[in-house]
């Protein structure tokens, strides 16, 4: 597999795994969970270093995943008290976990270079170079790992589609029919945590955060059907991956940054030209309405039949 293809495929797999979960995060108003996870994993890296003295990717992913899950469950629990809103819960939990990580480093590991950038945040440009032999073919490790994650997410969302839909739309009703909103909320968040941590290692934090938030938010501007929203999210994610790579190569810029910018561009376009919720469509609608009202008023004062052909 060529390096180009491998990079695009890696980003596309992140877009797929993230795009399946992003819409639910946006609809549940916890879009920023992904950003929280990106900071909250620091203590995981420290703990792995303290126990195993390693910065190898797989153990680090494991340690980070533990704290990512801890982070999302703590957010969920705080929110579940009904005393703290979702956004505030996020802003309370991740700084605390991050701080634990920083203190751990200063206390026990200040002599070695241990931070998020050098341990868990990967650089997508280097993703093709780490390979695993699968059935005799060398395949990029990131592709192998992310395929697994994407597959799990597909299964999760397809199998529990109606449960996710019901608990996101109307949690109280779901409780009366025996579908626990708490359980599904936790499932979703744990899936987000695992997806994010795995993807951090391949493509870095900001691209994961972007792909979890921006395509889903864009899709939310474009459609009134949940399945279409998920499909649109996936499409925008892949467009960002392909166009972003092409753009980055042609102007020699950061690949992750360029992909994020393409996603942002898609959002800006949707914000203006979305057929039902876009700024242009709505201002046109407003103008048309006021004009038709004026015309009716004008017709009303004319004698009967005079303006019938308009």
């Amino acid at each position: 597999m060529s390096d180009n293809l491998s990079i695009i495929l890696t980003a596309g797999l992140v877009a797929t795994a993230a795009g399946l979960l992003g819409p639910f995060l946006v609809l549940r108003r916890v879009a920023l969970t992904s950003d929280a996870v990106s900071h909250a994993v620091l203590p995981g890296i420290v703990v792995i270093w303290l126990i195993f003295h390693t910065r190898a990717p797989l153990p680090v992913i494991g340690g980070a995943a533990v704290f990512a899950i801890l982070c999302v469950l703590a957010i969920d629990a705080l929110k579940g008290t009904n005393l703290v809103r979702g956004d505030a819960a996020i802003a309370l939990v991740f700084p605390a976990l991050f701080s634990v990580g920083v203190l751990g480093i200063t206390r026990y590991a200040s002599d070695i270079h241990l931070d998020l950038d050098s341990t868990i945040y990967g650089e997508i440009a280097f993703s093709p170079f780490e390979t695993l032999p699968i059935a005799g073919v060398e395949i990029a490790r990131s592709i192998v790992l992310l395929s697994g994650v994407a597959l799990v997410n597909i299964l999760l969302v397809v199998l529990l589609w109606k449960e996710f839909k019901a608990t996101t739309f109307d949690p109280e009703f779901s409780r009366t029919i025996g579908i626990s909103p708490k359980l599904l909320s936790r499932l979703l968040l744990v899936a987000v945590a695992i997806t994010a941590v795995t993807a951090f290692e391949s493509v870095g934090a900001i691209l994961v955060v972007t792909l979890l938030i921006v395509p889903a938010t864009t899709a939310y501007l474009l459609t009134d059907r949940l399945w279409l929203m998920v499909a649109t999210t996936l499409a925008i994610g892949w467009i960002s991956a392909v166009a972003g790579y092409w753009g980055a190569v042609s102007v020699d810029a950061s690949i992750a940054g360029a992909m994020g910018l393409v996603a942002a561009l898609c959002f800006a376009i949707a914000l203006f030209v979305s057929p039902s919720y876009g700024l242009i469509a709505r201002s046109l609608q407003r103008r048309r309405r006021s004009r038709s009202v004026q015309r009716e008023l004008a017709l009303a004062v004319k004698p009967q039949g005079a303006g019938a052909d308009t």
Binding site: F169, Y220, T223, R225, L226, L228
Partner: peptide, 27 residues
């Protein structure tokens, strides 16, 4: 206390009434 901006149609809302009988995972 539902989210009225949720991307869901009237038909899908009413379908939710069937979810308990349909059971988990099944469509």
């Amino acid at each position: 206390a539902v989210d009225w901006d949720f991307p869901i149609t009237v038909r899908e809302v009413v379908e939710m009434g069937r979810y308990a009988q349909i059971g988990w995972v099944r469509r």
